[in-house]
Amino acid sequence: MMRLIEPLNTQPVNSEEKSPSALAILGRELVKDKLAMASIIILILLLSTVYITSLVLNQDQIVKIDLLEINAPPSEDHLLGTDQGGRDIFGQLIIGTRNSFSIGFLITLITGIIGLTVGLIAGYFGGIADNIIMRIIDFVLVLPFLMIVIVCATIVPKFNLWTFIFVMSAFLWTGKARLIRSKTLAERELDYVSASKTLGTPNWKIILREVLPNLSSIIIVNLTLNLAGNIGIESGLSFLGFGLPESTPSLGTLISYAQDADTIQNKWWVWVPASVLILVLMLCINFVGQALKRATDARQRKG
């Protein structure tokens, strides 16, 4: 069948008239924000050091208990001293940061994918599916998340890295799904979606190619801020002793040694470096996230 409207479209759209994509705006705003740029540079330096050094370090060597070197202050042998088991703090910091960041990143990714899928479906199609999904989400959001994760960590036999990620993700997708759903709901009412529908574009194509790109900036902001939050939750649970298994070094575990009155007062090298590292990580990621958030709001853009 011949398309009647074809001739109208022959003139190519001038690329200069096209408004910049959402991602281009985010990038441009980020470069203009000095604090955010500094944070990105610190993050890249920190994480590349951590990931490269962790390749060289021998994890078994680090977690091995050395009774002759208990709570040793910083020296040439141990750059940041040792903990109560004679384990090297510096090595634990490197591996702990790698673990915390990787886990935070994985959880963000998994919850992002689930939240996005559920949110898009609920928001775009609405109806009964939306109703049921929202009831589930409202319910999960109210649950005492921390307590239930701790209970799971205790009763699940062989609680390991993957079960930890699974349990965390099972709870944390809900916030994202709710956000994406409400944004999709608003997007669905816009003219371009109706136009596409009239033209007969299949729903999945409208969702993936048209609605999703319009939500991309909100998704990126949310994922960035969540990454920081997830690192905080992971280290917090490890701090309480219900995160990673004991044999895996974690920043939270190092900080938990500060609950001992002697360590907190006299052995700063055990808990201060880990606390500073988490603070730096979380602050930097948050600064980037906040800068991106400002960039999504046209009123607050720098130009």
Partner: peptide
């Protein structure tokens, strides 16, 4: 608000305890 938003509760509580108590 940026700092308090980013700081995990357990680190903040430990720091407060270290500073004001010890």
């Amino acid at each position: 608000t940026y700092f308090t938003y980013a700081t995990p509760l357990f680190i903040f509580a430990i720091l407060m305890m270290f500073l004001f108590s010890f």
